[in-house]
């Protein structure tokens, strides 16, 4: 792009796109394209979102850092393969005897952790899988200026990629680094708990492929499901509880070093 083109683009593009968008929208509405009546049945068919409220449990002591969840997530959700975009990733914590804490997540842990992080003597070490916490009090939803990110009836925090303006305020507001700007759609993107799977009775992809059962998916309310048992028999921690985001990803055996 040479400078002249650039200047031309600058003068024309922002207002042009704005007016163009407005105009096409007006045209499409004038044509009265029937959007179809939207109701719970037309969206979910037989599934009733009012009967569910989802959450996830993660047992840190079971995670082996194989990165299968990261790979499955990228495949299932068409997350760009480049190592800058993750809906879920795995972190490795190594605390050495001299009190130093080292953390890494090479390519989100998608290829495991073949390299050693430190040559020093290890005091304790563990893997921590991370993903969107689907907060009950989500700061990302609060800051979205147009209502393009929202909490669904069954408790998943989702993004409307056809409505998001790409201002990235939600990415700034997320304390967990769980959001990114999708390089193709130019809209915010994040974990959906594999919403398209769970409404059909399947497990989220990361839970499906976890070989050690470190990830447990289930519901907050009913007592007879794996998550209810998980929160009953473990001491539970959440990430950054002092921010009052009310995360719905529950960690068992969470270490104080995890941020």
């Amino acid at each position: 792009m040479n400078r002249r083109d650039l200047l031309k683009n600058l003068l024309i593009i922002p207002p042009g796109i704005f007016l163009g968008g407005l105009f096409t929208k007006i045209l499409s509405l004038l044509k009265k394209t029937p959007l179809g009546k939207i109701s719970l049945e037309s969206i979910y068919e037989k599934y009733n979102p009012h009967e569910h409220y989802y959450a996830m449990g993660i047992d840190i002591d079971k995670c082996i850092g194989c990165g299968r969840c990261v790979e499955a997530c990228k495949i299932e959700n068409n997350v760009p393969q480049e190592p800058f975009f993750f809906r879920t990733w795995v972190e490795r914590y190594v605390i050495t005897v001299d009190g130093e804490t080292k953390v890494d997540s090479p390519e989100g842990g998608i290829h495991g952790f073949p390299e050693t992080l430190t040559e020093k003597e290890i005091l304790r070490t563990f893997f921590v899988p991370k993903l969107c916490n689907h907060c009950d009090n989500p700061p990302c939803v609060q800051v979205c200026p147009v209502g393009a990110t929202y909490k669904s009836i069954d408790g998943a925090v989702l993004v409307d990629k056809d409505y998001c303006i790409g201002c990235r305020y939600c990415i700034q507001a997320c304390p967990y680094g769980a959001r990114y700007l999708h390089p193709e759609t130019h809209t915010a993107d994040k974990c959906t708990f594999c919403y398209h799977r769970i409404v059909k009775g399947l497990q989220p992809a990361c839970v499906e492929v976890c070989p050690t059962g470190a990830r447990i998916f289930g519901e907050v309310k009913p007592r007879n499901n794996p998550l209810a048992r998980f929160v009953r028999f473990n001491k539970i921690g959440v990430l950054k509880p002092y921010l009052n985001t009310d995360p719905k990803v529950y960690y068992a055996n969470l270490d104080k070093e995890v941020t």
């Binding site: 409307d160 409505y163 919403y195």
Partner: peptide, 16 residues
């Protein structure tokens, strides 16, 4: 939010 967006999310293709 747009309820129609739920439809977009739900209709995502399943791979696993």
């Amino acid at each position: 939010y747009r309820a129609a967006s739920l439809k977009t999310v739900v209709s995502q293709e399943i791979k696993y």
